[in-house]
Amino acid sequence: MNRLISIGELAELKAVSVDTIRRWEKEGKLESVRTDGGHRRYRLSDFVEQKIGKTIAYARVSSHDQKADLDRQDAVLSGYCQSFNWEYEVIRDLGSGMNYRKKGLTKLISTILDGEVARLVITHKDRLLRFGSELIFSLCEYHEVEVVILNKKEDATFEEDLASDVLEIITVFSARLYGSRSSKNKKLIQKLAESVQSG
Rank of each mutant, 00 (worst) to 15 (best):
K152Q: 02
K152D: 00
K153F: 06
K153V: 08
K153Y: 04
K153A: 09
E154R: 01
E154Q: 08
D155C: 03
D155G: 01
D155S: 11
D155F: 05
D155A: 02
A156T: 14
A156F: 08
T157N: 10
T157F: 11
T157A: 10
T157D: 11
F158P: 05
F158Y: 10
F158N: 06
E159P: 03
E159R: 09
E160C: 04
E160Y: 06
E160R: 09
E160M: 05
E160K: 05
D161I: 02
D161E: 07
D161V: 04
D161G: 02
D161N: 07
D161Q: 03
D161R: 02
L162P: 04
L162F: 09
L162M: 06
L162W: 07
A163K: 10
A163E: 06
A163D: 06
S164A: 07
D165Q: 08
D165M: 00
V166F: 08
V166R: 01
V166P: 03
V166L: 11
L167A: 02
L167M: 05
L167I: 00
L167T: 00
E168R: 03
E168L: 04
E168W: 03
E168A: 03
I169C: 04
I169N: 04
I169H: 04
I169G: 03
I170W: 00
I170S: 03
I170V: 15
I170T: 09
I170D: 00
T171W: 09
T171Q: 10
T171D: 10
V172P: 05
V172R: 08
V172H: 05
V172K: 06
F173V: 14
F173E: 10
F173P: 00
F173S: 07
F173M: 09
S174F: 07
S174G: 08
S174L: 11
S174Q: 07
A175S: 11
A175D: 11
A175H: 05
A175R: 01
R176T: 08
R176C: 07
R176G: 10
R176H: 12
L177A: 11
L177I: 15
L177T: 15
Y178V: 03
Y178W: 13
G179V: 08
G179H: 07
G179K: 06
G179M: 10
S180T: 12
S180Y: 11
S180A: 13
R181G: 10
R181K: 14
S182L: 10
S182H: 15
S183I: 06
S183A: 15
S183Y: 13
S183D: 15
S183P: 13
K184C: 02
K184D: 03
K184E: 00
N185G: 10
N185E: 11
N185R: 12
N185M: 14
N185Y: 12
N185T: 14
K186G: 11
K186R: 12
K186P: 07
K186S: 13
K187I: 05
K187E: 14
K187G: 05
K187A: 11
L188H: 10
L188Q: 09
L188E: 00
L188K: 12
L188Y: 14
I189M: 14
I189Y: 09
I189L: 15
Q190T: 12
Q190H: 09
Q190P: 02
Q190N: 13
K191Y: 07
K191R: 13
K191H: 06
K191T: 10
K191L: 14
K191E: 14
L192I: 13
